[in-house]
Design a binder for these strands. Structure first.
Lengths: 191, 191
DNA sequence: GAGCAAACGGAACGTTGCTCCGGTAACTAT
DNA sequence: ATAGTTACCGGAGCAACGTTCCGTTTGCTC
């Protein structure tokens, strides 16, 4: 079956606008962060605000669409690192580095990730659903190798690392990577 | 000299309003977090919004005034813990616990602490100015005892711990204390 | 080309932070 | 006590933002 099974095909202008919007959003996110005013994105894309909301009902949907590729890449990197490294703990550390790098290069993304901000449940859910299994796999491997303690779940680790990244891009002297690495070190246990 | 050297004494109604405002703000902060609308606080206090801005030009000033006592208490606890503990590292761990407890019990305070939020420089500065020296003292003591590595400055540690606390009050399963403790563990080195 | 549903645009509404100024009431000098 | 001074108060008003809603346009189908 093609790209439209059952449902009617989208109109050409709609498809065009969706791409235009993603490009505009991506550009504006880089310039002004993921909190950028909706109107800015609309203006940049040359459409009305209504069009944005029709394509992406919530800001979370837009953010997810913009960064989907990178999140997938990060998720895919997990098993690969596990295969390429002798030590699962080392693989975990490298994966966390990737995750941190991804977050700190997106202005304000880390700041929205934590759930108390309402309206971003979808974003939160997507990240968790996609990355937590990967992190769990790494954690389990390290645990099985006896390299780390087992009393920290992947969700909480990721949440903590995500938090550490907040505001990192705005302050050069603050090195989120190092703090995250410290956390991973703290996870280590003699074995 | 009395409580007014040089400057003219404040009017009685002004002093009264200041206290009323602090009480109202404190109550509203507990109910709705430190992001609560200014109008809510004004209504609660039975004054106009102008009165708030006159007494506390920025929200940061208001927050500082409300929590000053607790911050001071936390600062004072540092040297005390250092005196009461054999191991400086243990003292540090306990102090961080205090700091975390303080932050997580204030809805959204941790979220505002990190500098990328503009308009809160004063808050940021106050916290740093008051607590960083204390943290430095603990860190130095632990370093001198050879218990920890020395390549992490107090500012960054506090920033990281503060970040870990973000959103903690909204999610019972997320234990900021434990993650902070893990960070401190990661700081440890054989010596 | 005519008809229709889908998509568009932006005016409009509610909520916020913050300012500004006419009115009020607390101090002071007499 | 009283009048004058001035610090202080209150909330109307403005700007920026998220979000909705509906009259208009546009692309697709026959």
């Amino acid at each position: 079956m093609g790209e439209n099974a059952g449902a009617r095909a989208k109109r050409a202008d709609a498809r065009r606008n969706e791409k235009t919007l993603l490009d505009a959003a991506s550009a504006v996110f880089v310039e002004s962060g993921v909190d950028a005013p909706v109107r800015d994105i609309a203006t940049r894309a040359g459409v009305g605000v209504g069009t944005i909301y029709r394509h992406f009902p919530t800001r979370a949907d837009l953010i997810i669409a913009v960064y989907r590729h990178q999140v997938e890449a990060c998720a895919d990197a997990g098993p690969k690192l596990l295969a390429d490294n002798e030590s699962p703990h080392a693989a975990l550390a490298q994966w966390i580095d990737l995750f941190v790098d991804f977050l700190v290069t997106k202005h304000g993304l880390a700041g929205i990730m934590q759930s108390d901000h309402s309206g971003f449940e979808a974003l939160h859910a997507y990240f968790l659903e996609r990355l937590v299994p990967v992190c769990t796999e790494l954690l389990d491997a390290a645990a099985k190798a006896g390299e780390i303690r087992t009393d920290l779940e992947a969700v909480h680790l990721m949440r903590g690392v995500g938090n550490l990244c907040i505001g990192a891009e705005a302050d050069d002297s603050y090195d989120a990577r190092r703090l995250a690495a410290l956390l991973i070190t703290g996870l280590r246990q003699d074995g």
